[in-house]
Design a protein around this nucleic acid. Sequence first.
DNA 1: TATGCCGGGGT
DNA 2: ACCCCGGCATA
Length: 409
Amino acid sequence: HICIFRVKDLDLFVKKRVIRSFSLTDWKQLSKVFFCFCFHRRSEEEVDMDKVTAAMVLTSLSTSPLVRSPPVRVSEGLSGSWKDNGSAGPFTPSSNSSSGGYWSWSAPSDQSNPSTPSPPLSADSFKPFRVPSLGGVGPGPAGPEDPILDEQDGSSLLFDEPIPRKRKNSMKVMFKCLWKNCGKVLSTAAGIQRHIRTIHLGRNCDSDLSDGEEDFYYTEIKLNTDSVADGLSSLSPASPSVLSPPPPPPSPLPSVSQLPDSHKPTQPSDTKEPHAGGTTPLSRSAPSALYLIHTDHAYQVMKTYVNNNSAGSASTSFTPTNSSSFSISWQSPPVTFTGTTVSPSKSQGFGDQRSQTIAVLSSPPRATAALSRKVRGEGKKCRKVYGMENRDMWCTACRWKKACQRFTD
DNA sequence: TATGCCGGGGT
DNA sequence: ACCCCGGCATA
C-alpha cells in the first residue's frame, strides 16, 4: 500500500498500531505536510517499528520537505547509531544539515505556508489515498506534484520486501508521439498535439483548435530528468519491441459504429492519411502487452485493436458501463481486453475522469502469418487413414474434430 | 465434395 | 476434462 497522509496522522496510526512498520522513499516533491509512505504489515518476528522511533522519524520528517535518496534503512539508522548516540545519526536535523549522512534537507523558510492544503483526515477515517495494484500511474488531484511511480529497483526501499514501484528523484512528464517512426517527445501536451496535428494529421498549423483526435496518437511518459538521455534512448523508435510493434497487415478500417458515441473518434483517421501501406496510424502504433494508460488514451488502444483485427470477420463489442469496469472483445482473431477503471463515484474527490488510470491487458500483437487461419495439414489424418467406418480407431482429437494428434504435420 | 479443424456449447 | 458439432477454409 502506498498512502499519503499527514505526518501527524502517521503518529496516530503508529499509536493505534494501524501501521506496524513503514518505509519511505524519496518523495521530495511532496510538501512537508504530507508524506508518502510505503508500508506493509509484516510478520511478528520481523522488524517492528518502535513507536518512539517512529515518532522520532516523524519529528524529523515534519521539518523536512526534502528527503534524499538513498533513504535510510530503519533497521540500521533508527535503531542504530541515531537512536543510541543522539544526534550523530543518519537523520540530520535541519539545524545541522551539513553533517552529511543519508538524510539532509533544508528547512523551508516559510514553514507556516505549506504548499499543500490539509484536507480533513484522521486516523479513524484513514483510507489509502491510492493503491496502485500494478504500480499504476494514477494521477490524482495533485497534478504535476503527484507522486510518480516507476520501475526502479527496490534496493533503496527501507525493507527488503520489494515494493513494485517507487518514485524517482526528479521525474518529468513528457509526451511522446506514438506515430510510427516518429517518437517525438515534447514536454507539453499542447506541443505534442500541435506536432501531431500538423505533422501527422496534416491539419492547419495555425489553428490550435483540436477535435481531440491528437489524443489518440501520443502518450504520457515519465522521464527522470537526471538521466533524460537514458529515458530518451530507451524510448526511441529504435526499440520496436517496446514501442513499435510490428504493423498489422493492410486492412480496411472497421466500422466503429458499435462503439458508443462518447468513445468514437471524431472521424476515421486513415481516410485522409497520406501514408502508404493501407495501415492506419493507430494500428501501426499498437501497443502490446500490459499497459497502464489514462482514459485519455483508453480508446486509442481499443481502436487500435479493432483495427488490427479487422482482417477477420470481426464482431466487435465494446461494452462501456457507468460502473467500474468495461470489457471489449471480438471473435476473430481471439483477443480480449479486460480493463478496470475507477468510477467517478468511487473516486470522489480525486480528480476528473480523464486522469484516472486504466489497466488494459491484452494479448501481444500476433505475427502476420498467425492472422490467417492455420493452414490445413497436408498429410493424411485419421479420417483418411482409417475411414469413417473405423472412426473408433481415430485419435481422440480427430474424433472431436480437433487437430489430429496422431498424424501431425 | 471431402477433409481438417477452430470455436463454442453441452455434460 | 471430455465430447460433440456448426461452420469455415482448403485440397
